[in-house]
Each structure stands twice: as structure tokens, then as C-alpha cells.
């Protein structure tokens, strides 16, 4: 049977891949942001596992920072989405193409 570490790692991989997929394919900005949160969770999982394996607080501290950053990012992104929604009336990503090359 696979060891815990490998199970956790595979869960993390799935989380990350699904997060990436949602971010790529979803047309709504909020859901795309959720994709990002998923990815970050995948990363957190691996970090925690590493922390446990190497028996020091490195993993945990990184997780804390990642979580913190995710929180800050989510807060700001969502408030931006609110403003975008007010301005564009919709949150589908296709409409935000003004930064075209």
C-alpha cells in the first residue's frame, strides 16, 4: 500500500491540477479565483507534509505565509471583481481584454 506521504502528495497533485484546470477553463472570474485557492491548498498540503517529515516549523511557517497571502489576494481580487462587475456588468473573463498586445 502507498505510504501516507505519497497519498498526501497525490491529493496535493490532484488539488493543484484541478485548481489549474478551473483557472484555465472557467469563464467566470470568481471561479477562476477559486481555482487559484485550490492550487494554493495543494501547495499547502505538500508544505505541511514536508514540515512533518523534517520535523521543524519550516513547513508550517510557509503554510501560514501562503494562507496569509491567499487571504490578502482573495480580499483584494474580490473587491476588484465587485468594481469590475459594476463597470462591465458581467464578470466573464473574455470581456477584460483591454490589455491586448
Amino acid at each position: 500500500m502507498i505510504a501516507t506521504g505519497q497519498l498526501i502528495f497525490s491529493v496535493a497533485i490532484f488539488l493543484f491540477c484541478f485548481g489549474a484546470l478551473t483557472f484555465f477553463t472557467k469563464r467566470s472570474a470568481v471561479v477562476a479565483l477559486m481555482g487559484i485557492e485550490l492550487m494554493l491548498n495543494g501547495v499547502n498540503l505538500v508544505l505541511v507534509q514536508a514540515g512533518q517529515i523534517y520535523k521543524n516549523a519550516e513547513g508550517t511557517s510557509l503554510v501560514l505565509f501562503v494562507t496569509l497571502v491567499a487571504a490578502a489576494e482573495a480580499a483584494l481580487a474580490l473587491s476588484i471583481f465587485v468594481i469590475l462587475y459594476r463597470k462591465y456588468g458581467t464578470l466573464t473573463l473574455e470581456n477584460f481584454r483591454s490589455l491586448k498586445g
Binding site: 483557472f23 484555465f24 477562476a32 498586445g101
Partner: peptide, 18 residues
């Protein structure tokens, strides 16, 4: 040529990065 890749959609950028 380079500007072709600047489609403007965040998702395509992320895709390319990955």
C-alpha cells in the same frame, strides 16, 4: 510577432506560463 501572444486574457497567459 511577440504581440500575438498578448491576447489579453489572463488565462492564456497563465497557460503559457505553465
Amino acid at each position: 510577432l511577440a504581440s500575438i501572444f498578448h491576447t489579453g486574457s489572463v488565462q492564456s497567459y497563465a497557460l503559457l506560463m505553465l
